[in-house]
Design a protein around this nucleic acid. Structure first.
Lengths: 145, 145
DNA sequence: TATATATTTGTAATCATTACAAAAACGATA
DNA sequence: TATCGTTTTTGTAATGATTACAAATATATA
């Protein structure tokens, strides 16, 4: 699914965000690279196309997108924030071996508890950690040696 | 429930951690202050009792405790890590207004998904954010003015 | 007691993120 | 289209949590 610049521009305008060249490029990267990138990854990719790009712009832009509910920060890592353009409810699994982050479907809607009666819940996050199938396989292979 | 220094010392020894004075004091603070403190909070409290205390020691100690499954880091905040001495399964709610963190019971054990077939899951975290009852009440009160 | 080992301490380094001001781009208006 | 005000981008400096590391101290063992 390739989204045209026109669509991306409209998506920004809908949310009251002026569709500057940099903002469109950041959104385009996020839509096309759904690997939950860090600011560094976004920056290092786009600097090739936009030589004058500043890392500040990436920070400004992702924070703007977050405020407009266009993007969700993922706090599964301790050291750096990752970003997810898919704002629908789902969980995140981080492989402790390769570091990759996987999405998984989970019924977050019905995730409730008596203990939070009287609380207003704005956001729910579900983070799992462990080892992904590929890394498990490699581990097994290594044992044979 | 007051835990004696002897019990705390034994708890450390059980896990193969030498019960130094600083380690016992950190563990004591964690057991008695279950507010999910930051390194700074632990340090600022204990410096009163141990004037020579270094913040490095707090970092060393909490990381040691985490490796020994005596303590769990909570990554619900973006900027700093909090620590939970209660390592049993439960969720964490962070009030976006007062910043307080609340524990809540939730059936994490049965939180599963077809999507993670073949994955080894080592750890599950459930983080909710929103407004706690007290802050909701204050908000309402302020509107009356 | 002497010696080896573990722990603590203090400082320097790291690194992601934010703050801020100057420069550049943009938009509206005449 | 030229001008003026506003928004956005950029680059650098500042911040702040955490880690690295080496010297000092405490502890265990022989």
């Amino acid at each position: 699914m390739v989204e045209s610049v026109k669509n991306l521009s409209e998506k920004l305008s809908e949310r009251g965000i002026r569709p500057s060249y940099q903002r469109i490029k950041v959104l385009e990267y996020l839509v096309q690279n759904r690997c939950h990138p860090t600011v560094d990854q976004i920056f290092n990719h786009l600097i090739k196309e936009i030589p004058t790009l500043s890392k500040s712009t990436i920070y400004n832009t992702v924070n703007l997108f977050i405020e407009s509910d266009l993007l969700k920060p993922i706090g599964i890592e301790d050291n750096e924030v990752r970003y997810d353009i898919d704002t629908s409810d789902h969980g995140h699994f981080k492989c402790e071996s390769c570091g990759k982050i996987f999405d998984f479907a989970i019924d977050i809607e019905n995730l409730t508890t008596e203990d939070l009666k009287g609380f207003r819940i704005n956001d729910k996050s579900v983070y799992f950690k462990g080892i992904c199938p590929e890394c498990l396989k490699n581990k097994k292979d290594n044992k044979k040696i």
